[in-house]
């Protein structure tokens, strides 16, 4: 073990960690928002739109992330979509994550008893208000854990961005490994970084879960 290597490569590794966090946060929150929109369109939209969303969900969930990234990054220029590696990475993250998020939201919608929605319509609440005041507060309870779960899965998918030369954590680590002919030290530190991210995410997830179940404990 040669730990003085980290003095030399520490800054590069930390920058890589920053890029990883950037791609992860922007990509997964983008996917979260797009997934919510898809789930709402699936619920309230007309039938043809529902089929389109269904096909989108099935196709994206049925193909590897790496292939999607390649289609976007290498295939994009074929139809005039020239993206930098980081842009392609974030965009493909949003595309990849959204169907999973939309499925989680869909299961949340289904968890709220339909009778409550009918009752709310009877007392004259608008659809927007029903969504905000009745469905959302209740559906957040069962879906917070799966959402956290998927955020954690996405932290680790960021490693794949290294194959299209996004200068993220794994990319910097591989550079360090190749330049110094060490493998044990860089990869151990790398694992530690990811583990930290995962622990942090589950901590935030636990806080969020406590927040959305507040009304259940008060009673």
């Amino acid at each position: 073990m040669e730990f003085d290597l980290f003095l030399r490569y520490g800054p590069a590794l930390l920058t890589g960690f920053g890029v990883t966090i950037l791609c992860w946060l922007v990509g997964s929150f983008g996917g979260l928002v797009l997934g919510f929109v898809l789930a709402c369109l699936y619920r309230y939209g007309p039938a043809p739109l529902r089929w389109v969303i269904y096909a989108y969900v099935e196709v994206i969930r049925g193909t590897p992330f790496m292939i999607q990234l390649f289609i976007l990054y290498y295939g994009g220029p074929h139809f005039g979509l020239l993206l930098s590696p980081i842009q392609a990475g974030i965009l493909s993250f949003i595309v990849y994550g959204s169907p999973y998020f939309s499925e989680i939201f869909r299961s949340g919608f289904n968890a709220v008893p339909h009778g409550q929605v009918e009752a709310a319509r009877c007392v004259g609440l608008s659809e927007g208000r029903i969504l905000r005041r009745i469905i959302l507060p209740q559906m957040l309870v069962p879906i917070t854990a799966p959402l956290t779960n998927f955020f954690i899965i996405l932290t680790k998918e960021t490693a794949i961005l290294s194959v299209v030369t996004v200068p993220e954590l794994l990319y910097e680590t591989q550079t360090m490994a190749a330049e110094t002919f060490t493998f044990v030290e860089p990869f151990l530190v790398l694992s530690l970084f990811y583990w930290l991210m995962v622990i942090g995410t589950s901590w935030v997830g636990a806080k969020a879960e406590a927040r959305v179940t507040r009304h259940l404990r008060k009673a």
Partner: peptide, 19 residues
């Protein structure tokens, strides 16, 4: 195994086992 990216695990297995 759930906390470390699989890509990293693959590289670990491939490069570190010979050590």
């Amino acid at each position: 195994f759930r906390g470390v990216p699989l890509l990293v695990q693959l590289l670990l297995f491939y490069y570190m086992l010979p050590y």
